[in-house]
């Protein structure tokens, strides 16, 4: 699953640590999310979307091949 986390974070001018503090995860998790190595739980996905004040589907881009993983 792709996401626009890095792009949105940069737009806001936040560091990875600031974003991690805002959503209550470790900085390493933010790094993994931005690199697409880790897919968040639905709770974290909603928390991220609310932090950026956008709809969840505008942040996470679901692709068919995600089902094959």
């Amino acid at each position: 699953m792709k996401n626009r986390l890095a792009e949105l974070r940069t737009t806001k001018g936040w560091t990875q640590q600031q974003l991690a503090d805002l959503v209550g995860v470790s900085r390493q998790t933010v790094i993994s999310l931005e690199r697409g190595r880790y897919n968040p739980s639905i709770t974290l996905a909603f928390r991220l979307a609310r932090t950026f004040e956008i709809q969840i589907e505008k942040m996470f881009l679901y692709e068919e091949e995600d089902d094959e993983q």
């Binding site: 991690a20 995860v25 998790t29 993994s32």
Partner: peptide
Amino acid sequence: RLGIEEQDERN
């Protein structure tokens, strides 16, 4: 931070 690290969903 340690508390967050422990409860962090990826960890």
